[in-house]
């Protein structure tokens, strides 16, 4: 197309057409840009500005200050919330990957093709119920009189119930229940895109099944793992419901700390600063994982 313009238009006219062409895609991307500006950039700027203000009586003191950020670093309880969030998110992500990969592999490789769609639909079926209800259901399952404790007591593995609910363990279980399915979907998609000829070629060259998996399948499905892992990190580190319902407030995570600022006192400046800090952490994670997060593979 460029060649035909160059050929038909002399000198400056050709350059002008070139410039015009540069803007040709604009109408197509404008809706997405507007959407991003309206629902991401503008709220982000508003939150950033708010984080530099301070709650003052019934109103706000709009003199810019970093006092809210200083509070985070000076108050050990606040900083600990970030540490707790990072720890829980890391555990959830690793456990979810370890469980999701074999599940996705079974779905992609062992379940007959005609049953795979049904299996996938069944896998996500529980997520059509309310997230809050699911969390409370886990609370009942993990409670002292829940099925887990009662089974362990019935089998004489335990002599008395142990505390499973209202612990970090319960929070991790609630998260993993959700994110295993999410990771299964992204890994499954990757496995299905993987041509069998790669494995055959590796086997022909003398690789045993473990070597085929380790040197061929795993590297080629790493992008699916990383996409799922990144989604897991973003959603888990910002989730309020699961730690609130299942963790029993025996430790505070960042979303709980943020909500605490809003609930009674309505301290949106401090809540905004804490949210910005959380976003910075997520951005750092993104940068660390960026090389695997390209959605297409060249």
């Amino acid at each position: 197309m460029t060649t035909s313009i160059d050929a038909s238009l002399p000198g400056s006219q050709s350059t002008a057409a070139y410039r015009w062409l540069a803007f040709a895609p604009l109408p197509y991307i404008l809706p997405a840009m507007l959407w991003t500006l309206l629902f991401f950039a503008a709220p982000f700027v508003a939150m950033l500005l708010m984080s530099l203000w301070q709650l003052s009586g019934p109103g706000l003191d709009t003199t810019p200050t970093l006092a809210n950020y200083a509070q985070f670093f000076n108050n050990p309880a606040y900083f600990q919330a970030m540490v707790n969030s990072a720890e829980v998110t890391a555990i959830v992500t690793v456990v979810s990957i370890l469980l999701a990969y074999p599940f996705a592999w079974i779905l992609a490789e062992r379940v007959p093709e005609r049953w795979q769609r049904l299996a996938l639909a069944l896998a996500v079926l529980p997520f059509w119920t309310s997230y809050v209800v699911r969390s409370y259901a886990w609370l009942l399952v993990l409670g002292e009189r829940g099925i887990v404790n009662q089974t362990l007591l019935g089998l004489h593995i335990l002599s008395q119930p142990i505390q499973l609910a209202n612990t970090r363990f319960a929070t991790v279980v609630g998260f993993v229940h959700f994110f295993v399915m999410l990771l299964t979907l992204t890994i499954y998609a990757n496995l299905k895109q993987l041509s069998p000829s790669y494995r055959k070629a590796a086997a022909d060259l003398g690789a045993n099944p473990v070597q085929v998996f380790w040197h061929v399948v795993l590297p080629l499905t790493l992008s699916g793992i990383m996409v799922g892992a990144f989604l897991t990190i973003v959603l888990a580190i910002g989730d309020y419901i699961t730690p609130q319902v299942l963790g029993g407030n025996n430790e505070l995570l960042m979303p709980q700390l943020i909500m605490l600022q809003i609930g009674r006192r309505g301290d949106f400046p401090l809540a905004s600063a804490l949210s910005i800090l959380l976003m910075i952490v997520v951005t750092l994670v993104y940068l660390a994982m960026a090389r695997w997060l390209k959605l297409e593979r060249a």
Binding site: L182, A189, S195, L235, R297
Partner: peptide, 21 residues
């Protein structure tokens, strides 16, 4: 990568449904 019958629509719908949840 070779395009296979991976049911992309199903996956996309499933992820969307899961996230919406």
């Amino acid at each position: 990568l070779t395009k296979t019958t991976s049911g992309k629509g199903v996956i996309a719908a499933a992820i969307t449904a899961a996230l919406l949840g």
